[in-house]
Write a protein that binds this DNA or RNA. Structure first.
Lengths: 220, 220
DNA sequence: CTGGCATGTCAACAAGTGTTCGCATACGGT
DNA sequence: ACCGTATGCGAACACTTGTTGACATGCCAG
């Protein structure tokens, strides 16, 4: 991807890629445990032992298959009022649009029972979502809290829509979902955080985000 | 539970109960697949074959272990403005309070990879959450949609807090969470549904719930 | 053409799974 | 006391899993 001179273009690169493709699909569809090496190999049209030869172990194959990249946009370059809808639309597009990426579903399915996958998800949260939110909010602890709230809503959406397939949620169009859920995310990001223990909030009125005009988000 | 004369109190009832207890714990902790009959039997302190004798098969054991009862309160008897926080607090108390019930976690963990468990969850949603919401909203389709939105938030909360254990979400106190997330649920239940395809909404201004005074929910 | 290595297949292993069967044992009614 | 049955155990079966090693086959350098 980076430099074309990435050394030694092996003849088996096609097979390697095919294995990875099959692995991604299987892991996304079945989760870590249920996805068997044999099934992946069958999908890739080769022998199971090849999988081991090229990727060592099932764990390592999973590690190679999962490259969770939320590709979050720079939120500071988005109109303040549209942060919520934009973010929801982004996620929907990210995992069911044209350039869909099974990464999150893969991880979500697996994380329910596999603690390594859960750790991955926590890492992605800490390393990708929290930093982006931190650009909007000064207070570190508060940024983490806001990011956490956003995660509950976004992962819940992914869960209900793409995994559980709750009929009403699965039936709604991406636009409708963005319109319905956008305000929630908007409030989590920029709204006042109503009363409650504010962890680490040292600033006097520490429940306000950097973008001053907070509050009435979610009323349309 | 109902009548003490429930016929033939067998001598093995204690064992049966112990098996069920161990099964619930294991299913909740590991999910359907990862929870093995042998492990459950070991937890219960008996032989694996006893599990089969008393419950037939692993599927049937799972079916016997899961009795998802959200015990949702009658929302019509709750102050309109407090619907959201009440509901969030109820759920938090339901699955981590004194009378905690692993049922939902059990189902959530399993539903990610087991389609039978997912179907259970859909049934619980359709049979318990939707009807309660329907008491608040006339339009059936709209009630289902609102219930779906509530599900995305509540299941997302359960997921992030009790399964993924995202640090910020896991660290927040139940009260704080209710204060933060309550308004979201409130808006999903009684708020105006902002523009977007309104499925089945035949009424002219069909985006308003029965409880007239909608709108500015979530601004504190 | 020929050797050496990458690529791939086949068969098998050891461990773990749900599940079944046969055999002890202890209880409860007569 | 005795017998039928419920209760429990242990071993085993058939199967799937991840993983490994021996063996075939193709490609390219010399």
């Amino acid at each position: 991807m980076v430099a074309p001179s990435t050394r030694t273009p092996r003849r088996s690169d096609a097979t390697r890629a095919e294995i990875l493709r099959a692995a991604r699909a299987r892991f996304a569809a079945d989760g870590y445990q249920k996805a068997t090496i044999r099934a992946i190999a069958a999908d890739a049209g080769i022998d199971p032992s090849m999988v081991m030869r090229y990727y060592g172990t099932k764990d390592q194959l999973f590690a190679a298959a999962v490259d969770i990249d939320l590709r979050l946009p720079d939120l500071t370059r988005i109109p303040q009022r549209r942060l919520g809808v934009t973010l929801v639309a982004h996620f929907l597009h990210r995992w069911e649009g044209a350039a869909a990426d099974d990464g999150l579903l893969m991880l979500l399915r697996s994380a329910a029972t596999d603690r390594a996958a859960a750790e991955r998800l926590r890492t992605a949260f800490r390393g990708q979502l929290v930093p982006v939110v931190r650009h909007l909010v000064d207070n570190r602890a508060q940024a983490a809290e806001r990011a956490g709230l956003v995660a509950t809503q976004m992962l819940g959406l992914a869960l209900c829509r793409n995994i559980l397939r709750l009929p009403p949620v699965a039936a709604m169009s991406p636009d409708t979902l963005a319109a319905r859920i956008g305000p929630t995310v908007q409030r989590y990001l920029t709204g006042r955080l109503p009363s409650g223990t504010s962890p680490g909030g040292t600033s006097p009125s520490g429940t306000s985000p950097r973008t001053g005009r907070a509050g009435a988000a979610g009323t349309g």
